[in-house]
Nucleic acid binder design. Structure first.
Lengths: 134, 134
DNA sequence: CGAGCTATATATAATAG
DNA sequence: TCTATTATATATAGCTC
């Protein structure tokens, strides 16, 4: 996109490749950020450089879910929390919207979790493969 | 990037947002593909549209690239089904119990998922550690 | 090297069909 | 709607320091 058109194939010159990687990685993350903001989309983006550096971008909610995965005690807290909306006193008609809201929140949480699971499983598979072939 | 400069904030008009989402999503995936090819980088990109569709792109360790829209069932989740109860015709008062049922199901699903994630992550951590120490 | 700097290539917002 | 077009805004390849 610049002084000259380039073919989309691996750049063989190592330093040129490094420069292009830095520039395009920044561009890609910016585009991801813009898309998520403009269109209210949930996005997770992970980039491994050939040098092995990891770059990661995820919309905030995904990141939060990621953080929460760590400890079992926190896990239990989450489970207890998720009981509340329907185990309590939601029987009056006006509570319909509270229930609807809870369902929407839960649906969103599921989305984040599945994105996280997907990425985690995919990358672990590769990581394990890589180690296994050493 | 076009006839007029736009501010990077949520597009409120729904159809305009949908159009922008489609265009920019395609652009983002293309950029991801180019970066991975040019710089030999491994990339995983997942996008959830506001409508709930999931789009995914990932390079694999053997250099193959897959880009496709994957269904929730492939992730062992049928979110489309879960959406219906509140996205559609649940506006009558009698539908309250349907909603409540959906919420209960989702809560249970979350519970299983949290447990699954916990086990899976622990297991992988050990597996990777084992390979890494070889 | 890394941090700018153009000249171009691309992406895309608005519009047309 | 949906696709195609087009005028601009952005991204970036090669260069400079």
């Amino acid at each position: 996109m610049a002084r000259r058109k380039i073919a989309i194939k691996k750049i063989e010159n190592v330093s040129a490749r490094q420069v292009t990687f830095s520039k395009r990685r920044r561009g890609l993350f910016k585009k991801a950020q813009e898309l998520s903001t403009l269109c209210d989309a949930e996005i997770a983006l992970i980039v491994f450089s050939p040098a092995g550096n990891l770059f990661h971008f995820a919309t905030t909610s995904i990141g939060q879910v990621t953080e929460r995965r760590i400890s079992y005690s926190e896990l239990k807290l989450d489970l207890d929390k998720s009981h509340q909306p329907y185990d309590n006193e939601l029987q009056v008609e006006g509570e319909y919207f509270k229930l609807e809201k809870a369902l929407k929140e839960k649906t969103h949480e599921l989305r984040y979790i599945y994105i996280y699971i997907y990425i985690y499983i995919s990358w672990n598979r590769d990581l394990i493969k890589r180690y296994a072939s050493m």
